[in-house]
Amino acid sequence: MTIEAYYRPETLEEALDLSAEYRSSLDIISGGTIAMPAINEGKTFPARVMDIRDLDLDFVESSNGERTLGATLTLTGVLEKIDEPFLRDAARHTGGWSIRNMGTVGGNLFSPPPLGDFAVALLALDAEIEVQQRDEQRWISLSEFYAGPKSTAIEADELVTAVRLPPIDGDTTYTKYTRSQEPARAIVTVAVNLERQDGVVETVRIALNGAGPHPVRMHEAEDILEGERLERDAIERAAEAAAEGADPPEDAIASAWYRRKMIRHHLSNALCELRNQEETK
């Protein structure tokens, strides 16, 4: 079997025409760090591949605290163009230098578990993604985008073109736990964005990687914390709920059993860290 064609469109129109024409027989790559290993290994043989790295989607736009990141912005691009510590942390922990030079913000959304250590931060920030097809453009929340194992809420003729982040309020923390020194696959990655009012949690978003088929929000744990102070009992109950609610992947790095233990441990640590931080107004 051989791959019939490799397309490298230069305009979005051209790219959308190709995805309309070939739909699911067209694999899309931007940095290549997800698709190429599978092709090199002989695990996948896409009929056609479209490389969108030339589409000029490597931008960052900011207005009124809202940020929009183009889908083909590399993780190195994030580190060069964004000074927000939480996003930088996430980019910094996604692969080594050469992988960060290749891997993109849009591509990271499609990472198989337990990859996706940038996407998990986007999920904690309640990001929206821009999806385009030839005749239509729409925004969907990242939570909606993740539709289940190996499945996303976008159609075969649609392209993810950008990620939009609301202004970041309150406090954030990002922890990636690995077996060996990074770059390494995550056992679990914890990303939390939490807002407090006089010590009481008003809203919290807990996103975990290594806890499901894609980065997942832990709504039950969030519900436990909202309206509470960040004290030992609430933290322990939230961490326990997250561990119980998780459906961790199993691989050579960690068993599901171990990942569950580590979810409880590292989420509890992350929340303790926030407790010890001064509340940001």
Binding site: G31, V49, I99, M102
Partner: peptide, 19 residues
């Protein structure tokens, strides 16, 4: 397989030659 492309280190096993 690290090489430099326009001065940036990349892993050349993951870059389609045409790119």
């Amino acid at each position: 397989c690290t090489v430099l492309v326009d001065g940036e280190p990349i892993v050349s096993c993951l870059l389609p030659a045409e790119a």
